[in-house]
């Protein structure tokens, strides 16, 4: 590894408040290039909210998010929220708020999958992956309309086929995406995310609904794509075996608040973490 690993994602004092509910409170998080970092916590801890803030779906109430060393999202409580704000006010950000839409962030190199699968239901497996390369187009409407971008189109198709073959979905390319078995749909979502050409991949519960064997294969697969695509991976997962197996570092949150972070061994023996999980209602 290099001496000073490059920072990929930096979350600084992130707070998300919906009405009177503070879903994420004053969360700080760092991910360096090439790492697999897991975000865990009991149900409703605010994990997916963190993903939604990082991908620009939600506008944070307070805090700053930087990608690849550049601030992309920044906000502080304004207007009505100033009075109603319930979160911890870390540093006050006096500089101007900054927003990026999800598609702009994806162009910067952040791709994600969804907790509840969101494939393009009217498309085949092949088209799903092909569509995800649309953002890297060089053609404009007119060249695309008259199909003058044959070379580019061809390259997209080859890349799609390549990606599908590497995960073993090549034979199913003409099936409707929603006709695939559940596990394969999850796999397809990851492939579709890879097709956008990301540097940082966010996986939201990729092993949900998978059996132990599939989960184990998924672990191998995640390691493989990190290596093959030079990715940094940020993962939310409930399968502890998978998390402990693949993660370099783990962040634990509960009720939107940071409670621990560290390498898997540290987390396994951390009292606060054990309390959070046992004090809850499961595991």
């Amino acid at each position: 590894m290099s001496e000073t690993p490059r920072n990929v994602l930096h979350i600084d004092h992130l707070t998300m408040q919906f009405g009177g509910v503070v879903a994420v409170n004053d969360l700080c998080l760092d991910i360096n290039e090439g790492e697999i970092v897991a975000l865990i916590g009991p149900n409703g801890a605010g994990k997916t909210t963190v993903f939604n803030a990082v991908t620009g779906v939600y506008e944070p109430t307070n805090g700053e998010i930087s990608l690849f060393g550049k601030p992309v999202i920044r906000n502080h409580p304004q207007g009505k929220m100033k009075k109603e704000y319930l979160g911890t006010l870390g540093d006050k950000y006096l500089s101007a708020p900054l927003t990026h839409t999800p598609d702009e962030l994806t162009k910067l190199g952040v791709a994600r999958t969804f907790q509840n699968i969101r494939l393009f239901s009217g498309m085949t497996v092949f088209e799903n992956v092909l569509t995800a390369q649309h953002l890297r187009r060089t053609s404009n409407v007119f060249t695309a309309l008259f199909h003058l971008n044959r070379a580019e189109d061809h390259r997209m198709r080859i890349k799609t086929m390549d990606l599908l073959e590497t995960v073993g979905l090549g034979d199913l390319k003409d099936e409707m995406a929603t006709a695939l078995p559940y596990g394969k749909q999850r796999l397809l979502e990851i492939v579709r995310a890879l097709a956008t050409g990301p540097k940082l991949l966010l996986l939201d519960e990729p092993a949900a609904g998978m059996n132990p064997q599939e989960t184990e294969e998924l672990g191998v697969f995640i390691r493989k794509i990190r290596k093959d695509f030079g990715l940094t991976i940020f993962i939310i997962e409930h399968h502890m075996n998978l998390v402990m197996d693949i993660s370099d570092r783990i962040y634990v949150i509960d009720f939107g608040k940071w409670i621990a972070d560290g390498v898997p061994e540290e987390i396994q023996n951390n009292e606060a973490v054990i309390n959070a999980y046992l004090g809850g209602d499961e595991e």
Binding site: T55, V57, T106, A111, F114, R118, F120, H134, T196
Partner: peptide, 11 residues
């Protein structure tokens, strides 16, 4: 098909 997914795919 899915606005949220489309936007997340950079569209």
């Amino acid at each position: 098909d899915d606005e949220i997914a489309a936007e997340a795919m950079g569209i």
